[in-house]
Design a protein around this nucleic acid. Structure first.
Lengths: 157, 157
DNA sequence: CCTTATCGACAACCTAGTTGTCTAAAGGAG
DNA sequence: CTCCTTTAGACAACTAGGTTGTCGATAAGG
């Protein structure tokens, strides 16, 4: 049935995202969600102020500002005055921010390896190839292609 | 990279869910989201009151009550007094509710066929088999296995 | 009969968004 | 150099979809 396909895809994402969130929490990054990761990556990739970040994430400036405030509060990004434009506040990823990004990548890689061991490297590559064909390569660039997720709930975990 | 896998799965779900939501809207069911569908199916499957629905969806009674209020307001479910228990309000799926469920199924089936034409029936079955292996069969029963999604955003669409 | 459990409603709050309004600063046209 | 427009970011007020805690009414069991 068609709906089952959607459920499988969602279930797959949630399994990975929940496991990653839980593992990050275990390592001290409590409540660091996928959307925070997206935002951090956009900042690391060059979004140097709130308005720019908003554009890259395709959300309102206000939503971006709230995310920045949260990331700043937790020490993942820092804001400084822009010497060339008094309106702007320059965004910067802190060492803590860089470490959470690195750890996030490592965790996802580890989760992928786990799946590889379960169904085989070939089968997993095949799955990725199929999905890439279906979605187009733009699916991998959320911060440039104009979609962003709402947060997915933490289950009982 | 591991994170890409997660993005592909999320992208796949979103592609299906957004297309289905848009198509339902086109057919007159405006703002009918996946979570409404989950709730309706749980009711159709026997959740006959708010507390029961809450348990099946693994959310609080209050969250279930809000969803019911919305579905009732739009005419998808009806509530009547329970003759055997004055505390309960019996939930019932209206003809309109049944029709939206039928249409939802048909739309998802059609979307799946479209994917089948793109990558081939064998490849799609393979993808579903892999995901089922990875997630276990419980992934297909969201209303019984204890997870529910937050809503996913409508993108620019 | 009385205690305990359950149903559904209420108020208050959280998170992650939205739009609209506003000030201050930047920058281009004349 | 001065206007006019654009931009950055902050504020308030709102929405959706959740949460917890409280409460009154009803049901059910010792």
């Amino acid at each position: 049935m068609g709906a089952d396909l959607a459920l499988l895809l969602l279930g797959g994402f949630r399994a990975l995202a929940d496991a990653a969130t839980a593992e990050l929490a275990r390592r001290g990054h409590v409540d660091f969600r996928p959307s925070h990761d997206f935002a951090m990556r956009a900042i690391a990739a060059g979004a140097s102020n709130a308005s720019d970040l908003a554009r890259r994430l395709s959300v309102s400036k206000q939503a971006a500002a709230k995310t920045i405030a949260l990331l700043q509060e937790r020490g993942y990004v820092a804001r400084a005055d822009d010497p060339h434009d008094a309106r702007r506040k320059l965004l910067e990823v802190t060492p803590l921010g860089r470490s959470v990004l690195r750890e996030g990548e490592a965790i996802f890689d580890e989760l992928r390896s786990r799946w590889e061991r379960q169904i085989g490297a070939g089968e997993l590559t095949r799955l990725e190839t199929s999905l890439t064909t279906l979605l187009g390569p733009s699916a991998l660039r959320p911060d440039e292609s104009g979609w962003i997720t709402h947060e997915l709930d933490e289950p009982s975990s």
